[in-house]
Nucleic acid binder design. Structure first.
Length: 519
RNA sequence: CGGGGUGUAGCGCAGUUGGCAGCGCGCAGCGUUCGGGACGCUGAGGCCGUGAGUUCAAGUCUCACCACCCCGACCA
C-alpha cells in the first residue's frame, strides 16, 4: 500500500475537543473520523485494525465451537413486545416504521431473535449445547456519547448466544466463553480483568465484565488488594463492621434541627461524623414509592425534614427489609476476605451474562428433553465492542509521539520509508523490498511521499506500525537498510540482500496474529 | 434530561470602543533542500453555526434556535 494514495491524512494538531490521549491519537493518526455526535467512520487504517480485532474475536469464538451467523440490524417490534423490552428500552433505542406503519427497532441486542431462531432450528436436546454469534451494528441512543470511540451511538458488537439443556450446561458454556474472552483480549494486547457485574434489571444469575483499567474509563471497579475479589461498583459490596449492642444506646429522643436539611449541615449542628446518621431516601419505582434508609456518609441526597431522631438503632427502632443499596468506596473492607478495597477506573470491553430461561420462557422457546418433556432453553449472552476495544488499545498503547500497536492488530506489519523518495535508486530498491516482503505475506505501508525525513518519521511514530524500515541513500551506500521497532529506541542495519527474509521471519515469529488471508 | 463551555478557511487559533475578516500549520505552482514535522517566491481557500432584531454600519450588541465538547443523571 502506497502511503501517497492512502485515504486519510494525519493531523499535526488534534481537534480541540478531543480530550483523552487515545482520542487525540486516533484522530491524528487517521484511524477514524467523527460524522456526528457518537457516530464515527473508520478510515482505511482504522478499518484494518477493526478487522483484525474482529478476526481475533472470530478465531477465539470458533475455537470453542461457536458458529458465526448474522441477524439483521432492523428488527420487528413484536418479539420485543413479548419480552417487555419494547417499552423498557424506549429511552435508549432508535425506532422507525415502514410505509405500512409496521414498527422496527434498530437492533440494541439480539436475544429475542436468536431465541426465535433457536426455537426453529433446535428441536431436540441432542442438538444441545449450541453457541452462535455474529458481528452486527448496534444502535443506542446514548444521551451523552464521549471519548471518541469509547461511548458511541452506533457500533459493531460481537454478540454470542449459548443454548443449553440445563443449568449445568449453561455453566459449562459460560466458562467456555469466559476462557475465550481471556484469550481474545490477551491476543489483542488488552490487559482485561474479569470483574463481577450487575445483571441489570433483567434479573439473571451471574454476569462478568471484562475491564481494562485506565484513567479514561467511565466504570469504577472495586479491587481487593488482598484476594481476587473484583467487582464493578454497580455490584460491589463490602464487609460492614458489627454494630454496637443496642442495649448500650438509650431510646431515641427528638432533636430540633430546624432548617437542617442535609447530612453535612447535621454534622455541623450536632458535632457528629456523617457515618453516625441514618438518612431516608424516597425512591419512585414501578412498584410505588419505596423508602430507603442509609448510613449518613453514603451517597449525597438530602432528606427533607426538620426534625431528626437521636439514638436510632436499625432493627430495634424500625423494621424493614435489609437490602444492599449503598455505595462502596476506597478503603472499605472486602466482602470476601476483609482486605482493603481499592477503586480504579476501567473500560468495559466485553461482558458475559447468564440469564437462564428468562427469554426462552417469555418467547416459548423450547426443545424436547431426554425425558420427553418440553423445556425452555437455558441461555447466556456474551458481547464484545469492537470499536471500543480498538480505542482502548490506543489508550493503553502509546507514548508521547503516537500509537504503539500490538503487532496482532496493527494496520500493517511494516512501515517502509524511502528517503528521499525522489531518488531513483532509493525508489527502485524500496519498491523491490516492498514486493519481496509482500511475497512473504508481510503487510507493508510504503511511504513513497515526497516529504522530508522529519515528516515521514513523525508520521511513522504517530501511526505506530510495529516495524519501521528505512531505505535511504545513506543506508544504500553500505548496501543496507535500517530496521527499527516502534516500541524500541534502537535501530539496526540489515544487509539489503536478506532484509526481506529477516523481516518476514520477525513477522512470522509474532504470536497471536490473526489469519487475515492475503491482503 | 440538569449544569457549564465552544461555534471565524481542512486543523489550531486571533479578531480592540460596532467601521474593508486575519495569523500559524496544511493545500496548489515554481525553485532550492533531503535522517526527525526544511527554506524562498507566488497563489487558492470564508453563508464568521442558523434565523430574526438593534444600527448608517454587526464576526463583534440583543433574542431564539441548531450543532459539538465537558461534568452529572440515565444506560450494558
Amino acid at each position: 500500500m502506497k502511503q501517497s494514495t492512502l485515504f486519510g491524512r494525519t493531523l499535526r494538531d488534534a481537534p480541540s475537543d478531543a480530550t483523552t490521549p487515545g482520542t487525540q491519537l486516533m484522530l491524528r493518526a487517521a484511524i477514524a473520523r467523527p460524522l456526528a455526535a457518537g457516530l464515527y467512520t473508520w478510515l482505511p487504517l482504522g478499518f484494518r485494525v477493526a478487522e483484525k480485532v474482529e478476526q481475533i474475536v472470530r478465531e477465539e469464538q470458533n475455537r470453542i465451537g461457536a458458529q458465526e451467523m448474522e441477524m439483521p440490524v432492523l428488527t420487528p417490534a413484536e418479539p420485543w413486545k413479548e419480552t417487555g423490552r419494547w417499552e423498557s428500552l424506549e429511552p435508549i433505542t432508535f425506532r422507525t416504521a415502514d410505509h405500512n406503519g409496521r414498527e422496527f427497532m434498530v437492533s440494541y441486542t439480539h436475544e429475542e431473535f436468536v431465541h426465535l431462531h433457536a426455537k426453529q432450528e433446535i428441536q431436540s436436546y441432542r442438538q444441545l449445547p449450541a453457541i452462535v454469534y455474529h458481528f452486527q451494528s448496534k444502535g443506542r441512543d446514548e444521551a451523552r456519547p464521549r471519548a471518541g470511540l469509547l461511548r458511541v451511538r452506533e457500533f459493531v458488537m460481537k454478540d454470542a448466544y449459548t443454548f443449553d439443556a440445563d443449568q449445568a450446561g449453561l455453566e459449562k458454556s459460560y466458562e467456555a466463553e469466559h476462557g475465550a474472552y481471556a484469550r481474545t483480549f490477551a491476543r489483542m494486547g488488552l490487559d482485561a480483568i474479569s470483574v463481577e457485574s450487575d445483571t441489570g434489571a433483567m434479573g439473571g444469575d451471574v454476569a462478568h465484565e471484562f475491564q481494562v483499567l485506565t484513567e479514561v474509563g467511565e466504570d469504577r471497579i472495586a479491587i481487593c488488594t488482598n484476594c481476587d475479589y473484583r467487582a464493578n461498583l454497580e455490584k460491589a459490596t463490602r464487609k460492614i463492621a458489627p454494630q454496637r449492642s443496642p442495649d448500650a444506646i438509650p431510646a431515641p429522643t427528638p432533636v430540633a434541627t430546624p432548617g437542617t436539611t442535609s447530612i453535612e449541615a447535621l454534622e455541623k449542628a450536632l458535632g457528629l461524623p456523617a457515618s453516625a446518621f441514618l438518612k431516608t431516601l424516597l425512591l419512585r419505582t414501578k412498584d410505588g414509592v419505596v423508602a430507603v434508609v442509609l448510613p449518613g456518609d453514603r451517597e449525597a441526597n438530602e432528606p427533607k425534614q426538620d426534625t431528626h431522631l437521636r439514638d436510632v438503632v436499625p432493627g430495634r427502632d424500625f423494621g424493614g427489609e435489609r437490602v444492599d443499596v449503598h455505595d462502596v468506596r476506597e478503603g472499605d473492607a472486602c466482602p470476601r476476605c476483609g482486605g482493603r478495597l481499592e477503586i480504579k477506573r476501567g473500560v468495559e470491553v466485553g461482558n458475559i451474562f447468564a440469564y437462564g430461561t428468562y427469554y426462552s420462557t417469555k418467547l416459548d422457546a423450547t426443545f424436547l428433553a431426554e425425558d420427553g418433556t418440553r423445556r425452555p432453553f437455558v441461555g447466556g449472552s456474551y458481547g464484545i465492542g469492537i470499536g471500543r476495544s480498538v480505542q482502548t488499545i490506543i489508550e493503553t498503547h502509546h507514548d508521547e509521539r503516537g500509537i504503539i500497536w500490538p503487532p496482532s492488530v496493527a494496520p500493517f506489519h511494516v512501515h517502509l520509508i524511502a528517503l528521499p523518495s525522489s531518488d531513483p535508486d532509493v525508489r527502485a530498491k524500496s519498491e523491490a523490498l516492498v514486493a519481496a516482503l509482500e511475497r512473504e505475506h508481510v503487510e507493508v505501508l510504503y511511504d513513497d511521499r515526497d516529504e522530508s525525513a522529519g515528516v515521514k518519521f513523525a508520521d511513522a511514530d504517530l501511526i505506530g506500525i510495529p516495524l519501521r524500515v528505512t531505505v535511504s541513500k545513506r543506508t544504500l551506500k553500505e548496501d543496507k537498510v535500517e530496521l527499527k521497532p516502534r516500541a524500541r529506541a534502537d535501530a539496526e542495519l540489515l544487509p539489503q540482500g536478506d532484509a526481506a527474509g529477516r523481516i518476514a521471519a520477525i513477522v512470522r515469529g509474532w504470536p497471536d496474529l490473526p489469519e487475515m488471508g492475503n491482503r
